[in-house]
Computed example of a mutant assay.
Amino acid sequence: MIFPSSSLIIAVYNRSEALELIFLSLINQTVLPNEIIIADDGSGENIKKIIDNFRDKLPIPIIHVWQEDNRNQKPRILNKGIAQSNCDYIIQIDGDIIMNKHFIEDHLTFCKKGYYLFGSRVNIQKSILESINKFKTMHFNFFSKGIKRRSRTIRIPFLMKFSKKVDKRSSKLRGCNLSFWKKDFISVNGYNENLVEAWKEDSELIERMHNNGIKGIRLKFAGIAYHLYHKSQNNPQLEINLKIERETIEKKLKFTDKGINQYL
């Protein structure tokens, strides 16, 4: 099968142990992306050390896009990172995701012009986090201890033949397991930097994509991702971001005035 050229975008902020696990899961991939872009929202030197350590262990370029730590500016660093992409297709994860070995393969196998893909995540609980970091655990299954949403560990890609197209944004959509065509992303001007901190950036983006005629496909029994436990973050800007998202929905907005075009 011939795949489109692809960039794996990893949104990170510190958590060097988690990034090491991501790189280890990358080494195990059945299909590699053409490049890796680390979208770094102001991490310290530990993240750079992890990146440098893996440059010789992976046969693809690693691009480190860094911005100064000024509270949470995830939409901005994602725009900056994707602006650096040299590929046609973007696969996006967060810096706390361990990928199943078929993760990249699944996203590329089921990508389709005019659509984005979104997958689920298996939650790894706090009780086994220390063990995972110590033993560099990469592989999980339905019977693994310390995980939630066990049914999401099951991979049966054949069943994707029966996957329904999504005309409206799904409540199950998460930016930690998402892929789309770069040209579709640019056509709506990418992430909305009017959003304050990191909340609703993925759903607001996808609303604009739907308004622009792009539809979704849910990766079910494919594109398996494991989400490492972390404390929930309070977002004092909740109402601001909700208001922006509501306006996008009600006015059927297709474009944001403050997006990726600043970096192209």
Rank of each mutant, 00 (worst) to 15 (best):
P157S: 05
L242E: 13
L108R: 10
E20N: 15
H64E: 00
P59F: 10
E245C: 11
E45N: 15
V12E: 07
K134F: 11
N211G: 04
I50P: 00
N177M: 01
V122A: 01
I224H: 05
I249T: 00
S85C: 09
E35V: 10
V188R: 04
S131E: 08
S151V: 14
F140T: 01
T137V: 15
H210T: 07
I27L: 13
K48H: 12
R71D: 11
I9F: 06
T137H: 08
N261K: 15
M99N: 06
I154T: 10
K183W: 01
A198I: 04
D202K: 07
I214Y: 06
N123L: 11
K126F: 07
R71P: 00
D40T: 12
E130Y: 14
T137M: 09
Y115D: 02
P61Y: 08
I82D: 02
L205W: 00
D184T: 08
D69N: 15
S203C: 01
T248A: 03
N79V: 01
R246P: 05
I9S: 07
D88Q: 13
G114W: 02
F143N: 14
E239N: 14
D69C: 13
Q233W: 09
H230W: 09
K74A: 10
E130H: 14
S144T: 15
K164Q: 06
N133S: 08
Y115W: 02
F221C: 09
K136G: 09
T137C: 06
D69L: 13
E204I: 05
I244D: 08
E17V: 12
N133C: 11
H227G: 04
N212M: 02
N241G: 08
T256M: 04
D52T: 12
L108C: 07
I50Y: 01
R15M: 11
E250L: 13
I244Q: 04
E130K: 15
F54W: 11
K113G: 00
I91E: 02
L195K: 09
V196I: 15
K161P: 00
I260Y: 02
S5C: 06
L195I: 11
N86T: 13
